[in-house]
């Protein structure tokens, strides 16, 4: 049997969850024996070259590009995992959720104390993704199979869950690994 293939991405996240992934330390050597990586910042593969078994999603959806990538991951990956608070509930980017987009853009590009924007231009290039009305948790956009909470999720949690998924074993999570901060 060929090795399971993992893909990872960071949507509206800070890459902290990926850093925590690297915190599995020397176990990463065991991991690369067990799996193969495809599209991921870890190996810098930018586009999917094949269908994958496990997709790890960091961050929620704050713009149209996030939605596009998340849907692509859903198509290409058999199992999708939200890892981190942002993917699960929007996280800190979702602090803007009770503020209108108009107000957010005005604060960032027009009214900010240090803003210099004499022409009063808001970013409108068609190359730029459109900002969404609010930040959405991943499972409100596509079906997510598992959720790993934490900011960031503890490295032990990521390892325990990945290891169990790859080997198809049951997992009993210790109290210390499920944390929301």
């Amino acid at each position: 049997m060929s090795r399971p293939i993992i893909a990872t991405t960071s949507l509206a996240g800070c890459f902290g969850c990926h850093m925590s992934f690297l915190d599995i330390d020397e176990r990463i050597l065991d991991l690369i024996e067990l799996v193969e990586f495809n599209k991921s910042p870890i190996d810098d593969i930018k586009t999917f070259t094949k269908d994958c078994d496990i997709g790890l999603i960091e961050g929620g959806c704050c713009n149209t590009e996030n939605i596009h990538i998340l849907k692509e991951f859903r198509k290409k990956c058999k199992i999708l995992i939200s890892f981190g608070e942002c993917a699960i509930m929007g996280g800190l980017p979702a602090l803007r959720n009770d503020i209108s987009v108009k107000e957010c853009l005005a604060e960032a590009y027009l009214d900010g104390i240090s803003t210099v924007n004499k022409e009063e231009i808001l970013p409108n290039d068609e190359e730029l993704p459109m900002i969404l009305n609010k930040v959405y948790p991943c499972h409100e956009v596509v079906k997510m199979d598992y959720h790993l909470p934490g900011c960031p999720p503890r490295a032990d949690l990521i390892w325990d869950v990945l290891h169990a998924l790859i080997l198809g074993t049951d997992v009993e999570l210790p109290y210390e690994v499920v944390k929301y901060d």
Binding site: S82, I88, M89, G90, A94, N97, D98, K134, P137, H139, E140, M144, Y146, H147, L148, P149, V178
Partner: peptide
Amino acid sequence: MAPRFPFQFN
């Protein structure tokens, strides 16, 4: 691990 209900963001 995650709530089953949609977030309200009231």
